[in-house]
């Protein structure tokens, strides 16, 4: 549960990140300051190229900020990664074609040294969770793109990391499946109390899922607005027609527009 008194799980102070490329430096992030508390669901929304992926990757120690400080559970991102604090769902499913779906889901468990019995138990549990119960023995290339993406979510859930980072996990899915997975994700979040960082291009998705919405603007990537959602934790799908919902969605849209006007 969200707890204001405990220190933030993820804390960024004045983060800047500059990529050195052949055409000169690219300033992907500039002066990002943000605190994410335990159990929060934070969405990042903004136009393409504004640094959402870069920020998420920096949290997971896949990129290294060139200025500012970033701590995760009070540690450096590398240390947090070594203590297996993250599950990361990438934009593409990235399953290994030589492993079955079950084999893919248990790969991080093998690496982290879970016992055989525990691996089997966890794989069964998370595959059921994403509705792939009967597909454990199939190979990734025998499944549709959406099913592969669900398998990759199952893989990130399998080892019970406290922090779940998701980069447009539902971007490639159709509206109906997306709604269902959104509901599932909220349920999972409610049950496990995980801290979730979630990148999306969809305003309704961001508003529906989040306790906090971070609106970003491009060149260089900055935070344009941070919106604390007043919606309750329990969210039926039809909350999306409520006035509060529409009001937040409006504010997100305004934030995006303001960011654009900046160029």
């Amino acid at each position: 549960m969200k707890d204001m008194s405990s220190p933030p799980v993820i804390e960024a102070k004045g983060i800047g990140l500059i990529f050195q490329t052949d055409d000169g430096p690219v300033e992907a992030l500039k002066d990002i300051s943000l605190a994410i508390g335990r159990g929060e669901f934070v969405s990042f929304i903004g136009p393409s190229g504004c640094g959402k992926t870069t920020f998420l990757r920096a949290i997971a120690a896949l990129e290294h900020p060139t200025s500012g400080t970033l701590t995760v559970n009070g540690m450096s991102p590398e240390e947090a990664r070594r203590s297996r604090a993250y599950g990361y769902v990438f934009q593409a499913a990235g399953l290994y074609p030589w492993r079955t779906i079950a084999g893919n889901v248990q790969l991080p468990l093998e690496i982290m040294g879970f016992s055989r019995a525990e691996r089997a138990e966890r794989v069964r549990k998370v595959l059921d969770l994403v509705d792939l119960g009967g597909f454990g023995k199939k190979f990734p290339w025998q499944l549709s793109g959406g099913m592969q993406q669900r398998a990759s979510i199952a893989r990130a859930l399998a080892f019970d990391a406290d922090i779940l980072l998701m980069d447009e996990p539902f971007g490639a899915l159709d509206e109906i499946v997306r709604d269902r997975l959104n509901e599932e994700l909220l349920k999972l979040w409610n049950e496990t109390g995980k801290t979730i960082g979630f990148v999306t291009h969809s305003i309704p998705e961001a508003v529906y899922l989040s306790t906090k919405i971070v609106v970003m603007s491009p060149r260089p990537g900055r935070i344009a607005d941070v919106i604390e959602s007043p919606l309750p934790r329990e969210r039926p799908l039809d909350i999306r027609d409520s006035p509060e919902f529409l009001e937040i969605a409006h504010r997100v849209r305004e934030g995006l527009r303001a960011g654009h006007a900046y160029d």
């Binding site: 990757r57 997971a60 120690a61 896949l62 990664r81 070594r82 297996r84 993250y86 599950g87 990361y88 990438f90 593409a92 990235g94 290994y96 790969l107 991080p108 690496i111 982290m112 080892f159």
Partner: peptide
């Protein structure tokens, strides 16, 4: 790169 990044997030 994606496959190597995954391995990195699991601290392999």
């Amino acid at each position: 790169a994606l496959q190597r990044d995954q391995m990195a997030t699991w601290s392999a």
